[in-house]
Every structure is written in C-alpha cells, then in structure tokens.
Amino acid sequence: MRRFLIAAAVTLTLASTPVLAQTTSAPASSAPAKPKYTSTDTDLGTLLDDPVAKAIVEKHIPGLTTNDQVDMARGMTLKAIQQYSPDEVTDARLAAIDAELAKLH
C-alpha cells in the first residue's frame, strides 16, 4: 500500500509540473559550427567521394588522389597517412587543407 501511495504522489507531482522543453527554447549556440571534414577526423575515402573535398586534397598534395595505392588508404585519415609520407603530407599542407575544408558545410 505504501508503494502505491508513493507512486501516486510522484505521478501527481509530475503531472502538475509543466514540461520545460515545451516552454523554453534552446539557447543560441555561440560555438562555431564544426567543420564537415577535417584531416584528423575524416577518412580519405570520404574525402575522395566528395568531388570538392577531393579537389582540395589534390590541390595541396598533388598526386595523392591519383596514386595507385590510394584505395589501400581510404580508411585512414590524412593525419594518419602523414606518418608514411611526411615529406608530402606536411603539417603546413594539412593546415591548408583544413582551412579550405572548414569552408564546406
């Protein structure tokens, strides 16, 4: 009986409490929008499948997107690929790629 009374009291309390989600709006986000793609989070396959992103990668790292072995690296990020080709996939090039990718939404 006691459980029933407690449950009834909770139910009545919840039923009489206004739902905040219905009366308040979400606060405006002051954080900048997260980039669609990045060199550290987006795998190469995703970048290659987007013609605009692929052109950005090719612009900054010429020949990467047409390399015979590019399909083997589709699951890797550009940052991960950097360890295998540090002379071509430099921090400066990755920063330039990220700057252009950030403009895509």
Rank of each mutant, 00 (worst) to 15 (best):
M1N: 11
M1Y: 08
R2I: 09
R2V: 08
R3Y: 14
F4C: 10
L5G: 06
I6T: 11
I6W: 10
I6Y: 14
I6P: 07
I6K: 13
A8N: 06
V10K: 04
V10C: 11
V10R: 01
T11N: 03
T11G: 10
L12C: 14
A15Q: 01
S16E: 07
S16H: 06
T17C: 09
V19Q: 10
V19N: 15
L20T: 09
Q22N: 13
Q22I: 11
T23Q: 14
T23W: 15
T23D: 15
T24Q: 15
S25C: 05
S25K: 15
P27T: 14
P27Y: 15
P27D: 15
A28M: 10
S29I: 10
S30M: 14
S30R: 14
A31G: 04
P32M: 15
A33H: 07
A33Y: 04
P35I: 15
P35Y: 11
K36E: 06
K36V: 13
K36A: 11
K36G: 04
Y37D: 00
Y37P: 00
Y37V: 09
T38S: 10
T38R: 03
T42Y: 02
D43M: 06
D43C: 09
L44M: 12
L44T: 00
L44G: 02
L44I: 05
G45S: 09
G45Q: 04
G45F: 03
T46K: 08
L47F: 02
L47M: 10
L48Q: 05
D49P: 05
P51I: 08
P51D: 06
K54G: 02
A55Y: 07
A55F: 08
A55T: 02
V57Y: 01
V57I: 08
V57L: 03
E58N: 01
K59W: 01
H60P: 00
H60Q: 03
H60G: 02
H60M: 02
H60S: 03
I61A: 01
G63M: 06
L64I: 02
L64P: 00
T66W: 05
T66H: 03
T66C: 07
T66I: 11
N67I: 04
D68V: 11
D68R: 01
Q69R: 11
Q69M: 12
Q69K: 08
Q69G: 08
Q69P: 00
D71R: 05
M72Y: 09
M72V: 12
M72Q: 09
M72A: 12
A73C: 14
A73M: 13
R74M: 09
R74C: 09
R74V: 15
G75L: 05
M76D: 07
M76Q: 11
M76R: 12
T77L: 05
L78K: 06
K79R: 15
A80N: 11
A80G: 10
I81T: 04
I81W: 08
Q82W: 09
Q83A: 11
Q83H: 13
Y84T: 12
Y84R: 12
S85H: 14
P86H: 10
P86W: 12
P86Q: 00
D87E: 14
V89C: 07
T90E: 06
T90R: 02
A92S: 12
R93V: 13
R93T: 12
R93W: 05
L94S: 01
A95P: 01
A95W: 00
D98R: 04
D98T: 07
A99E: 13
A99S: 11
E100K: 04
E100G: 03
L101S: 00
A102F: 07
K103V: 05
L104T: 05
L104N: 06
H105E: 14
